[in-house]
Design a binder for these strands. Structure first.
Lengths: 210, 210
DNA sequence: ACAGCCATGTAACTTGTTACATGATTTT
DNA sequence: AAAATCATGTAACAAGTTACATGGCTGT
């Protein structure tokens, strides 16, 4: 949801050809997210289809330049002047996973939490190491890179805090107040659902990955 | 990246039919992420294609039951016992946006940051309101719901902190150390790139959405 | 000459997501 | 009888991502 806009924003600075766009994106994001070249051309194709860019002149060397259209400029403006929406439908994989795992009769949620916690802490360490490994951020590239690293650090810290908070909340209540059998309240129409399925199903104790 | 696994995990509790899966997912995630029914059937189709579930018997009432396969059970085990990976290639839309916006000559980054900050704070308020609006979380449904809300709160708080942190860092350095013209270092092959494009391009001052 | 990068493209695939068609059953 | 809900499915699209084919140019 942001490669399109990013390329568009770069094209707003002036016409570019494919490979150049890759280079620009790399520079400006501190080479944090390697962008497959093929994706550039795909995205350009789709942007052209949507009338946001237009295929311009071709170089003597054969470079195919794309330039932004008025509609494209509007899109960039709108992107930059509106916030990134996070809420309502925004799915967080970890939150889904934990909420769901907490209701599965055969699963030890605290194990899941601990596994995640270890991974997040490890990543946090790696991020901090990477942060101070790079020399002082003089150039814009280094700055962009360190901005991104910071954002990941802040997110990882919040994740750990949430995990701890969640573990405590879950610890307060006995297992049976969480576990949900397959819908005991059978649907209006249809046979009674196999409620004993949980009995047949082998209990999964999420393995500690130590 | 998690609807598949979620459905699979539910099916690990026993055979289900489509509509039932929707209901189960809703219950267990506190109805936080409304899941289009059509998506269930799509996902089931794809799971069957991958050999993780199999179409089972059909009801007297016509309910088409799906059951998990051995491969599916393995997948669930592996999902629950391995952490959600966040790093390397994980793209954060906001981080990309800010890193990129910081390098665009015509854009006022602090405006972008402030716009985002306002939105994030507003969402935070809404989340806190929602958190205490719901009655005490007795049932598992309410608990799941509040877990999810908490995760969003923690994430939003981290986001605001990161925004403030970033704004301060950016304020320290003069504009020209950030702004990047279109690659001054022209590519090996090809004509000199329009470096004056930034001059032609109308300056975009990201509009404050007040 | 040969390896390797520059450069453009194409094809395919994954996950998520929505809109729509079609019945059956239940509720009002 | 009409409206709502249950239930299954199909078709299509969006966005991301990878793998591969094809040349030209460059450095050793």
């Amino acid at each position: 949801m942001s490669v399109k806009q990013s390329l568009l924003a770069i094209l707003d600075q002036g016409p570019c050809y494919g490979y150049q766009l890759r280079h620009e994106f790399d520079r400006r994001t501190g080479s944090t997210w390697p962008l497959n070249v093929g994706q550039i051309y795909n995205t350009l194709e789709r942007l052209e289809r949507d009338g946001l860019v237009a295929k311009g002149e071709t170089d003597e060397q054969g470079h195919v330049f794309f330039e932004i259209t008025d509609a494209g400029r509007l899109e960039v403006r709108s992107w930059l002047s509106s916030p990134v929406e996070r809420g309502q439908g925004t799915r967080d994989e970890l939150a889904i996973k934990l909420a769901l795992a907490a209701t599965l009769p055969g699963v030890d949620v605290t194990e899941v939490i601990q596994t995640q916690r270890r991974a997040s802490l490890a990543q946090l360490q790696e991020l901090n190491r990477a942060k101070y490994a790079g020399s002082d951020p003089e150039g814009p590239q280094e700055l962009a890179w360190s901005l991104v690293v910071d954002s990941m650090i802040f997110a990882a810290e919040a994740e750990v805090r949430w995990l701890d908070h969640t573990e405590q909340r879950l610890a307060l209540r006995p297992r049976h107040t969480l576990a949900l059998e397959l819908s005991s309240q059978r649907p209006k129409r249809g046979r009674p659902v196999a409620a004993d399925a949980a009995e047949r199903t082998p209990r999964i104790e999420a393995e500690a990955t130590r």
